[in-house]
């Protein structure tokens, strides 16, 4: 699975071998917590996107390590 695009807003993702360009992206929100647990700190920026292929996904950017990740695909 791979996500490409600009730093602030991904423009598409590859999931299950298929390419899904992002058609619309919603609001961004950030979570920063668990800094007191070694190795378990969470600092992420989430965004819900709707793809041109009809998927609704929750993506997040890892603010500590960099890179975008897929959190959920909604039915």
């Amino acid at each position: 699975m791979e996500i490409w695009g600009k730093e602030e807003t991904p423009s598409g993702l590859v999931w299950q071998g298929v390419s899904h360009p992002v058609a619309e992206s919603g609001i961004h929100w950030r979570v920063h917590t668990l800094w007191w647990e070694p190795g378990k700190a969470i600092w992420r920026e989430y965004v819900k996107v709707a793809t041109g292929t009809g998927l609704l996904c929750l993506l997040y950017r890892d603010m500590l390590m960099g890179g975008w990740f897929l959190a959920r695909v909604y039915d």
């Binding site: 929100w29 950030r30 979570v31 920063h32 917590t33 668990l34 600092w43």
Partner: peptide
């Protein structure tokens, strides 16, 4: 505190 929702969710 985290569990009880007392902490601000992020660092902004």
């Amino acid at each position: 505190a985290l569990g009880a929702g007392l902490l601000h969710p992020n660092s902004e």
